[in-house]
Design a protein around this nucleic acid. Structure first.
Length: 345
DNA sequence: AATCCGGGGCC
DNA sequence: GGCCCAGGATT
């Protein structure tokens, strides 16, 4: 049997029953693929179900407010995916009359859709012969064919795509593509792959050369930077607080958070007063205390956010404040959501 | 070509 | 602490 025939057979026997596998509707496939970018199936699945329930069609998604989408996306991370999701929903609804484009080239033009996702939609929804190359495919191909080229080098990306195209099964690309990814996720796992009971173990180069643990090869690890956050949890006499939307570049674009003083130095009363003035709180008496004595470290993939929350109690009221009862309606980062849950306004 | 962009699970 | 996850956009 060929490589692809074995993958197809393995998939037929071992495939999981996932919510987006009972359809080839491009809306469902697109939504699932966006959500699963750099995201485990177990983490993404509840979000997929939530979105399908709230937005049964792409037209519903296009008509939603961005804040509503971000709120449903809250906790899934990589929030540009949610913003691009909205943009593409509008594009398909308005420029394609609600019908997804059905070519790789057109799919690739959609926001948030890159080479992998365009190939995935083209193959799974339209059965077009486009190979997918995700993290699973890199691993399976690197091991089976004994490829030591770094998967994140320019040459490696091109080479693996070329190999993937050469070995794919064009007769059933829909199942083959899902099969090789599923095979990587279930059988040929990053750590402790199940080589003993593998349909490819008679012809796997890495297994023969005892290099399974060393493949695939990936270059350079990112360095993590420390940042120091001081959130001002302002509370006024009318049970209101302050939430501000993050604008511009950087993390958590368009999500909300408390007023933030980013500084390793503990903010003093003057620093807090200066920050409050930005919210038209002028010459009001206030008291404040540090909520968490032990620093909270929120870890992102490339930043460690060392955070203190400060409770700032005003005598008067906040102009245009957010009522305690409304706080839960705003999309916020997990760091902020965890605090809100703990504090109970 | 390198960097940025989340959060969670696992070792 | 490091690595990985059905990657893409930006610089």
């Amino acid at each position: 049997m060929t490589f692809s025939a074995k993958i197809l057979h393995w998939y037929d026997v071992n495939k999981r029953d996932l919510p987006w596998r009972n359809t080839v509707n491009p809306y469902n496939i697109w939504l699932s693929e966006i959500m699963l970018q750099q995201t485990r199936v177990a983490q993404g699945t509840p979000y997929y179900l939530k979105f399908i329930e709230n937005f049964p069609t792409i037209k519903d998604l296009a008509a939603a407010k961005e804040e509503e989408i971000l709120k449903l996306w809250q906790g899934l991370g990589y929030y540009s995916r949610a913003r691009n999701l909205h943009a593409t929903a509008k594009t398909v609804t308005n420029e394609y009359k609600g019908e997804f484009p059905n070519t790789y080239k057109e799919l690739l033009q959609l926001k948030g859709v890159g080479d992998y996702t365009a190939s995935a939609i083209a193959s799974i929804s339209f059965n077009l012969p486009e190979p997918v190359v995700d993290g699973n495919v890199y691993r399976v191909l690197a091991r089976y064919y004994g490829i030591a080229m770094p998967i994140n080098s320019t040459e490696g990306i091109k080479y693996f795509k070329k190999i993937a195209r050469e070995v794919m099964n064009v007769k059933n690309i829909r199942d083959y593509n899902q099969g090789i990814m599923e095979f990587g996720a279930i059988q040929c796992t990053p750590r402790n792959p199940n080589c003993a009971d593998c349909p490819l173990n008679d012809s796997c180069v890495a297994l023969k050369e005892n290099s399974v643990q060393d493949l695939p090869i990936k270059l350079k690890k990112i360095k993590v930077k420390d940042r120091f956050f001081n959130y001002l949890v302002v509370i006024d006499a009318l049970e209101q607080s302050i939430l501000k939307q993050r604008i511009g570049k950087g993390i958590w674009q368009n999500l909300y958070e408390f007023p933030l003083i980013e500084s390793q130095i503990t903010p003093n009363k003057v620093a807090i007063e200066t920050e409050l003035k930005k919210y038209d709180i002028l010459n009001q008496k206030f008291e404040y205390y540090k909520f968490n004595e032990e620093v909270i470290v929120h870890k992102l993939s490339h930043q460690h956010l060392k955070t203190h929350f400060w409770i700032v109690t005003l005598e008067g009221e906040i102009p245009n404040g957010v009522a305690f009862t409304e706080i839960d309606k705003f999309p916020v980062p997990v760091l902020v959501a965890d605090f809100i849950k703990t504090f109970k306004f």
